[in-house]
């Protein structure tokens, strides 16, 4: 079953086969692999959710989206510090910081929060 209002978006995922390495003491992330997924995108405008994400990420969030999708999608893993997927939507790149199940249904959709990577206006 498809998602209402779904669009095709590009996901940039850290390549699990080529982990990063330290070069001169700095962590160098390898190129990401590109994937296309179908998702429904909504703006991130729930104040409580934004506050929760700000506490988690330590960033002030002024630009974010919520991604509903049936595809596998990954957030930052705090335990291993593996970076999360990036998702490009309308020419802006966001980083997935939180993934959960979509509470209102039991259809296995993922509900992921993503915050804007570029300097925010």
């Amino acid at each position: 079953m498809g998602l209402l209002g779904s669009v095709t978006v590009t996901v940039f995922r850290p390549d699990p086969d080529t982990p990063g390495e330290f070069v001169n003491g700095r962590w160098v992330v390898p190129d990401r692999i590109n994937l296309e997924i179908t998702a429904t995108i909504e703006p991130l405008n729930d104040d409580k959710q934004i506050q929760r994400l700000e506490r988690r990420t330590g960033q002030t969030i002024t630009g974010g989206i919520v991604v509903f999708t049936e595809a596998a999608i990954y957030s930052v893993n705090p335990a291993t510090k593996t970076p999360g997927d990036w998702i490009e939507w309308q020419g802006i790149t966001y980083e997935i910081v939180d993934v959960g199940t979509f509470d209102d249904t039991s259809m296995g959709y993922a509900e992921a929060c993503a915050i804007r990577l570029e300097p925010q206006p």
């Binding site: 330290f22 003491g25 962590w27 291993t80 510090k81 593996t82």
Partner: peptide
Amino acid sequence: DNQRVIMSHQDCPDP
């Protein structure tokens, strides 16, 4: 080795 002498305060996996 050079994978275990790193700069601090980075977004990276622990060595």
